[in-house]
Design a protein around this nucleic acid. Structure first.
Length: 327
DNA sequence: CGACTTTGACCCGCGC
DNA sequence: GCGCGGGTCAAAGTCG
């Protein structure tokens, strides 16, 4: 693993030049243009995760989905609603194929999504509370529906997923997570890990799994929104992350929100999300690199399909944003 | 000793 | 109704 080629982080193999990249090939993607990766931007991304400053509508805006082209694709959400980017294809904003093939999207797909959501999350969430607080509400475990009543449906948290090229499965995002499970994934040699935010009363969860078609890609799915700020004591994570150049301290603190316009940034730094410009590999001030799509359309279909297969057609799929760690 | 990970078992929804 | 697969629990183990 440590022998993994470094340029995984430097190049967009995944979003290779021709929109038709078969996996990562020569990785000679449009080399670093001139997009700089400024601290506040990652902070904003974190804030997106946090949900404290931005809701999912903001996310929608942040990723450059102009109403003109994406309003049909996105269903605005409140509480447990989803943002869906296409039903079969995950084309985010792009030049031509913005609306996906089986786009029944809009309201109907949203509804379907919400329905499915409520089904799936109905069950366990009640139990989670108990375990997290150290107590268990009811009987011992494994004796049936502890906590919640059966019929009682639990609202589904909003989710979104993104894919990242990374050697490490669990990407640091500033929050503290506790792993609570791991499952083998069908048709994949790589397991899926389940994490929960360790902050009390914060029910945010995330799933992390590796693409079985391209093991260098990590698919991370967040569920829920943090109801607390970034932990200040990160067990060294913040420092480590910052040192690694993934985020800088100011990003973690996200003190720039007031002056930072996410849409502007995403328009500038992720042009592919809002138009048809070329994507590029960028360099942070700290010398780390992020992989950007050249075009959201260029999210390779296999990944889209894979996400779909995974059941990861979540509320939102965003491209890799985590820069490389420095050794 | 507390925080975290590992892991086998269990629960539940869904498709057949 | 049954089996499968996804998601979760919690005891035990590990680590700092």
């Amino acid at each position: 693993m440590s022998s993994e080629p470094r340029d995984l982080y430097y190049r967009s193999q995944f979003y290779d030049d021709d929109h038709h990249h078969q996996q990562h090939g020569t990785g000679s993607s449009a080399a670093s243009q001139d997009h700089q990766f400024d601290p506040p931007q990652m902070g904003t991304f974190i804030d997106c995760l946090n949900g404290g400053f931005m809701d999912y509508n903001s996310l929608e805006k942040a990723f450059g989905m102009s109403p003109a082209t994406s309003s049909e694709v996105f269903s605005s959400i409140e509480g447990n609603q989803k943002v869906i980017i296409g039903e079969g294809d995950l084309h985010l904003g792009s030049d031509q194929n913005m609306v996906t093939q089986n786009s029944s999207i809009s309201s109907s797909s949203t509804e379907a999504g919400a329905e499915e959501d409520s089904c799936k999350s109905t069950k366990k969430d009640g139990q989670l509370k108990g375990s997290d607080d150290g107590g268990d509400g009811e009987n011992s475990k494994k004796t049936g529906n502890k906590g919640k009543k059966k019929g009682e449906k639990r609202e589904k948290e909003p989710r979104f997923a993104f894919m990242t090229k990374s050697e490490v499965d669990h990407l640091e995002d500033g929050y503290r997570w506790r792993k609570y499970g791991q499952k083998a994934v069908k048709n994949s040699p790589y397991p899926r890990s389940y994490y929960r935010c360790t902050t009390q009363k914060c029910g945010v969860k995330k799933r992390v799994e590796r693409s079985f078609q391209d093991p260098s890609i990590v698919i991370t799915t967040y569920e829920g929104q943090h109801n607390h700020p970034l932990p200040t004591t990160l067990r060294g994570n913040a420092a480590a992350v910052a040192a690694a150049g993934m985020f800088q301290p100011s990003m973690l603190m996200s003190t720039h929100m007031s002056s930072f316009n996410p849409q502007e940034w995403f328009g500038t730094y992720l042009p592919s999300l809002s138009n048809n410009q070329q994507g590029s590999t960028t360099t942070t001030g700290a010398g780390s690199h992020a992989v950007y799509p050249q075009n959201m359309n260029s999210i390779d279909q296999q990944y889209q399909q894979q996400l779909h297969d995974y059941g990861l057609l979540q509320d939102m799929i965003v491209p890799s944003m985590f820069p490389k760690r420095e050794p």
